Amino acid sequence: MDKRYTAFISYSWDGPAHEEWIRNLVNDLRSQGGVDATCDQFEVQEKTVNLNKMMINAIRDNDYVIVVLTSSYAQKADDFQGGVGFETMLSLPALRTEPDKFIFVMREGDYAAGFPYHLRDYYAINFSNDVEYKQKLDELIRRIYKKGKFEKARLGNIPDFGVMLPDNTQVQEVSTYKSVFDDLDLPSANKISDLAKKKFINGSFIEICRLFEELFEQMSRKTSGFEFSSEQIDNQKRVFLLYLNGNQVSGVKIWVGGLGYNTNSICLSYGNHISVRSDNSMNEIISVDVSQHNQMALKMTLSFSTKDESMTPEKIVRSIWTSSLAYSFKL
């Protein structure tokens, strides 16, 4: 028996007609495809929902995220606006590690207008013509179950070409040019764009927040009397407050940009006196470092012990915990 797949529909609120089309797509996937599909319209009518948490859980827990592309969706994704902008930041790390989780559906016929910048190389099932709806629904359901419409032929045996060279034939080797400077680490001619850096920072911000929450949840399970609260101020700022036996002992504020720095940086403030409103002071600034071969990495610019290292989100969280937070709990 085939696995029962789950799917969450991501889309832009473009108006009543579009929202009805989304509901119909969800119900058709459920009734005609046996897919446990849903979207926010069904979730919010069943219970009280934190929309940001719902989107995080939807992308993390479902087998598939079906993204319905329109020109409005593309504009909001490129500008990181509203719920679509938040979903875009959430999806960037997952697109790198789990690209097959995402299925793209094009509701409007203009490829150039309907695709956000970071999705322009991806294939989308074209639902723009309502006359072809059943055909495209079948393609979508087959994609979910990985049951293609066409079958590849079985591989045959490799032919025995039986090539014989005459005795007087000389085979010339094709030489590959090798420079004496091949060992030098020369810079790449292409440059990473500001938009690529912005998306890298936004994706790293989400991952750092997720790792801090995972760390504090582990503390709650293992450390008696430890509790924490988490507040999402907006799509680019989050605050964690840490308590021991009911008393606040420390906290972490994380936000994108601040204090005259461009938005291609992540700032952190930690300790027991964090201001949610003011972003004028910070303990750490994380910037984008681009190697000569156009590989992006994170750097902690204010930490003497790690400022020359290329860092991952996990290394950053570990470093801040060890150097600045753990002492509050005498661990």
Rank of each mutant, 00 (worst) to 15 (best):
V84Y: 01
F86R: 08
T48I: 12
F80T: 08
M54F: 15
E46Q: 13
D61N: 13
N50Q: 10
S91E: 00
I56D: 08
G83I: 09
L92K: 08
Y64H: 09
D78I: 09
D79T: 15
M55V: 10
V67R: 00
L51H: 13
I66M: 05
G82Q: 07
C39A: 05
D63L: 09
D79M: 15
T38A: 13
V84M: 03
Y73P: 00
S71E: 14
T70V: 05
G85C: 05
V68Q: 02
T70R: 02
A77K: 02
Y64P: 00
G83W: 07
E87Q: 05
G85E: 10
Q75W: 14
V65W: 01
N57I: 09
T48M: 11
A74K: 02
F80K: 11
V44W: 03
T38I: 09
D36Y: 11
Q81H: 14
S72Q: 14
V67Y: 01
N57M: 07
E87D: 03
E46K: 12
Y73G: 01
E87W: 01
V67M: 01
D40G: 12
S71C: 07
N50T: 06
F80A: 12
F42T: 01
G83R: 04
V68L: 09
I66G: 01
D36A: 15
K47E: 09
V84H: 03
R60S: 14
S91K: 00
I56Y: 11
V49M: 03
K76D: 07
A58Q: 06
L90N: 01
L90W: 03
F42C: 02
A77P: 03
I66P: 00
G85P: 12
R60H: 15
I59H: 01
N52H: 14
L51F: 14
Q75C: 12
E87V: 05
A37P: 06
F80P: 04
M89P: 05
E87T: 05
S91L: 03
I56G: 05
D78V: 07
L51E: 11
F80Q: 08
K47H: 07
M89K: 12
D36E: 14
S71V: 05
V67Q: 01
D40V: 05
D78L: 11
D36T: 11
I66H: 01
K53P: 11
T48Y: 12
N57L: 11
G83Q: 10
N52M: 11
Q75M: 15
A58V: 10
D61G: 13
D61W: 12
N52W: 12
V68F: 06
Q41I: 07
F86V: 07
M54G: 10
L92W: 06
L69G: 04
E43T: 06
L69H: 04
G82C: 04
S91Y: 04
I59C: 06
V65G: 03
D78H: 10
I59A: 03
C39W: 00
Q45M: 12
Y73E: 11
M54V: 11
L92P: 02
R60D: 15
V49E: 02
V65F: 02
G85Q: 12
K76C: 05
D79P: 08
V67N: 01
S72A: 13
V49I: 11
A74D: 03
T88M: 15
Q75G: 10
A74Q: 04
D61C: 08
T70K: 06
N57V: 13
V49K: 06
G85S: 07
G83N: 07
